[in-house]
Amino acid sequence: MFITPFVYSDKIKEEIKKYANTKLNGELDYSNANVSFFHHFPSLTLDLNGFNLKDSAPYEKEKFITAKEISFGINVRSLIFNKLINIDQNQ
Rank of each mutant, 00 (worst) to 15 (best):
I3Q: 00
I3M: 04
I3T: 14
P5H: 05
V7I: 15
Y8W: 09
Y8H: 07
S9R: 03
S9F: 02
S9E: 12
D10G: 01
K11G: 07
I12T: 04
I16H: 13
K18P: 08
A20R: 14
T22Y: 06
T22F: 11
L24E: 00
N25F: 04
N25S: 05
L28Q: 05
L28S: 11
D29R: 03
D29V: 06
Y30G: 03
Y30A: 07
S31Y: 13
S31H: 02
S31E: 15
N34G: 06
V35G: 12
V35K: 09
F37K: 06
F37G: 01
F37A: 07
F37P: 08
F38L: 11
H39G: 07
S43H: 14
L44K: 03
L44V: 11
D47C: 00
G50D: 03
F51T: 03
L53W: 12
K54L: 12
K54R: 14
D55G: 03
D55N: 00
S56Q: 00
S56I: 10
S56F: 09
A57C: 06
A57R: 12
Y59T: 03
E60G: 01
K61L: 02
K61I: 03
I65V: 12
I65R: 04
T66G: 00
T66L: 10
T66D: 04
K68M: 08
K68Q: 09
K68W: 02
K68I: 10
E69H: 01
E69A: 07
I70L: 14
F72S: 11
F72W: 13
F72T: 04
F72Y: 14
G73L: 08
